[in-house]
Design a binder for these strands. Structure first.
Lengths: 182, 182
DNA sequence: TGTACCATGTAACCAGTTACATGATTGG
DNA sequence: CCAATCATGTAACTGGTTACATGGTACA
């Protein structure tokens, strides 16, 4: 049940239409909770019918027209409740680890290239997050940006840095001439 | 499309029934790709009808009886293909980060307790993984266990260690008397 | 005989994904 | 008028989750 709360958060910062939300989900919140426009429209409908948000009144035709939503008091209350509620940490769920595990059984042929590709992608993402940090949270001016948003960004940086170092180490442990194991 | 390949991997190591697979998914493979017995039975049916595995012949009644499966050559080939195929890294998708982001908007009341709870859970999981490492990959005998399985375990250890350090740091940045932000 | 447990399954639901449909607006 | 773009939406499917149903076996 995370998407509705992601949407409430975004709408509290700024009332928006579905497409505007979709665009904002391509950055910031979308870095750790992505969503397509179909998901967002569906969820906006549900949030409206359960009374957590409402569409701002508009004149003229409806179909094909921009429709803006704002959060109602009940929506804000629900978001506050959810923020502090107990919720178990997500167990790890990563296809790449599963593939390494499979390679331990059927052999590592072709695996090294894929690991190197992931390594490059994670390095890119890490550089991207670090650039955002330099821009939004310059050193020595800690009072500027929101410390919680900074913490979230540091999580992204830390996770990408972890994958970079783990992948670099793991590529080194692969057999030199990939072949079926005994 | 990861679950069928997780099952193929487990069945290659040892032909098993659905319930045995479920139990094995509670450990090892389940640490990074969990599945319930309903999922596993559904997937076993699909894998059988697409010719990747087959049920070992059994005498006597069928309903309520253990049914063992083994991997067919086509199944092994599919697993080899999948192991080396291109597949994009999973973007981060973590409800806790979303909750921090929400707290930046609606306030941090009640959040610290939840962060401390997660911190304790991650410390536990980290200790668990480290114990497995000591047991299955004792230092100085690197030739013993499979290096790929060790790499997977190191990923688990590294991720848990990351969350522990990030949570400890983040708890420290919360406002002392949680209140609504300006 | 009844109850605990082993084992296999069905049904219904929810979240996320992909493909497509439709209306409105703008500019050549 | 047409094409591009903005904007909202439907439909169909897949994977994962929860609740429940059913048969078989061991044993007190």
């Amino acid at each position: 049940m995370s998407l509705p709360h992601a949407i409430l958060t975004a709408l509290l910062e700024k009332p928006s239409s579905g497409l505007e939300l979709t665009r904002r989900f391509d950055k910031s919140i979308g870095f750790f909770w992505s969503a397509t426009h179909q998901q967002i429209y569906r969820e906006l409908g549900r949030l409206e019918s359960s009374g957590l948000i409402r569409a701002l009144p508009q004149a003229g035709p409806v179909r094909g027209q921009k429709k803006e939503y704002e959060v109602l008091p009940a929506g804000r209350a629900e978001l506050e409740r959810w923020t502090a509620a107990e919720d178990e940490p997500r167990p790890i769920r990563d296809p790449l680890l599963l593939r390494l595990r499979a390679a331990a059984v059927v052999g590592t042929a072709g695996l090294e290239a894929e690991l190197r590709r992931h390594l490059a992608l994670h390095r890119e993402q890490l550089a991207h997050y670090e650039e955002i940090e330099r821009r939004d949270f310059p050193a020595g001016e800690e009072s500027d940006g929101d410390p919680l948003q900074h913490a979230v960004l540091r999580a992204g940086i830390g996770l990408e840095a972890f994958w970079v170092s783990w992948l670099a180490e793991t590529v080194g442990t692969l057999p030199e001439a990939p072949a079926e194991p005994a």
